[in-house]
Design a protein around this nucleic acid. Sequence first.
DNA 1: TTGTTGACCGAGT
DNA 2: AACTCGGCCAACA
Length: 145
Amino acid sequence: MATDADIVHLIMKTYRSKKGLPSLPPAGNRKTGPKEPADTPSFFERIYELVRQIPKGRVTTYGALAEASGLKITARMAGWAMYAADRAQPPIPAHRVVNSSGVLSGKDHFSTPTLMQELLEQEGIVVKKDKIQDFKTVFWDPKSP
DNA sequence: TTGTTGACCGAGT
DNA sequence: AACTCGGCCAACA
């Protein structure tokens, strides 16, 4: 079981240096995306705040985050915020957010094709074919922590 | 202004 | 289980 520090270290590998902010695309597949969290009066920080509360070994969904935020935003907007997750400070455990089917839909945004799955497995979560097993058990609802 | 694009979702087939 | 489809809405071109 990895410590929080280990996890943060791994996630940090995907970060561009803070000073070189403009250099975004981690894997070269980023087309457009949200501006810096600070620019948008933001539900960004609100979402990130919730993501930081997800316990190790548990996951939640974009829709659950949107609903729990208390803001009028949709799951799509939560996903939009996660698009800039690598710029969140302090870092957030972005690997603990999956879609409502338990699929690792955001895995392409990590530094390697397997990093997201590896981080989850380190926390004891079983992933098969990009899908979380026993999703109901592992799911954590930010609305009722 | 309009059309297109997403780390989405739920219902339907 | 694996698809579609309509709704969603901020940012871009």
